[in-house]
Design a protein around this nucleic acid. Structure first.
Lengths: 191, 191
DNA sequence: GTCTATATTGGGATAGAC
DNA sequence: GTCTATCCCAATATAGAC
């Protein structure tokens, strides 16, 4: 045969890498099979020698990303686990991560508002601002509270609900929600 | 004219309500104009008497949802603001909200993994589980830490990154991320 | 303003040459 | 295994009757 097995494996990996980046940053529907193949310098037709369908590619890319995540990196020996965890969190919560080429699929896959026009983005930002304002006004009604606490609180509850939506296991969802309700009280200083 | 202005306004509102629910639960691309119109018992053709395009509807539905949010409800007079805030957060972090017909667009809009097949969902859940496991192992390495704290932590950082992705204003994004880094340390007991 | 019918495009998937 | 060419369906948007 004119193409070695190694060659096919290389191609497959290139396709997965391109798919992961594109899906993560643009979302499933905003990316075409052609986009993926062009990104790794192949053609549409070749795709089906590697994957059965576009949804199939999507699942494989998600699986692929798990093995390539920053969080899964090995801790350097000279660092304490606490320092290392701190460093990992800093990396996760950095603008480089948010704007980078290897975003966390948990947060990025599946959000297609980034591919919407500017008007939709503005509407989203407005909604977000409103939410913070409302919660801020309640939380700061009699006890003083700072903005940072509110921002972390809204991130948490938005993240919790977003993730819960994706998880089928009811008991896991209940656990996530209960944990965040408890933490919300802690952040607000024990209501 | 055979159709009153009131009739048109009613139709428009019905379309917006259907669009909001469908977009929020299924995502932009998974919902067709026809789906929306069928949901409110109209036909495709009539759509363009109300909106210029599907993206236009999307933006309008997002705006519409802001005026209909649970968070914007008025506080009952007999309740203290703290009690009321507590109640609002409980509502937001409830399974009823997660599975309901009026989900928060901040968390729901734009996530199209729910319209993916089961394999993709499983891959997502696995990734999520891994993330919690990794962070748990680091956080619990020498100090004891409980699962609930980790679950709220991962919700927060996922939510923060997800929201940041949608916001164009760089300074807002920086503020969100910094707030969550600070809160993360607090949750983990001050690293 | 709402309906039915239709034009048109984009993109997933297949066929067949190399 | 990869390429080019093609099929085909889904879905946006328009045209025209009522």
């Amino acid at each position: 045969m004119s193409y070695s097995k190694e060659h096919k494996q290389r191609s497959r990996k290139k396709i997965l890498q391109s798919a992961y980046t594109l899906f993560s940053t643009k979302g499933f529907h905003a990316v075409t099979v052609n986009d993926v193949m062009l990104d790794c310098s192949l053609t549409r037709g070749a795709f089906y020698a590697h994957f059965r369908s576009k949804p199939d590619l999507y699942s494989e890319a998600l699986r692929f990303s798990a093995t390539n995540s920053e969080l899964a990196k090995k801790k350097p020996k000279e660092m304490s686990t606490k320092e290392w965890l701190s460093e990992l969190l800093d990396g996760y919560l950095s603008t480089e991560h948010v704007n980078g080429e290897k975003p966390c699929p948990l947060a990025f896959l599946a959000m297609d508002i980034v591919s919407q026009d500017d008007t939709a983005k503005k509407a989203y930002a407005l909604t977000y601002k409103n939410m913070n304002k409302i919660i801020m006004s309640y939380a700061g009604a009699d006890a003083p509270c700072n903005e940072k606490e509110i921002l972390s609180l809204t991130s948490m509850i938005i993240g919790a609900v977003a993730v819960s939506r994706m998880i089928d296991d009811e008991s896991v969802v209940k656990n996530i929600l209960a944990s965040c309700r408890q933490q919300a009280r802690l952040i607000l200083g024990g209501i």
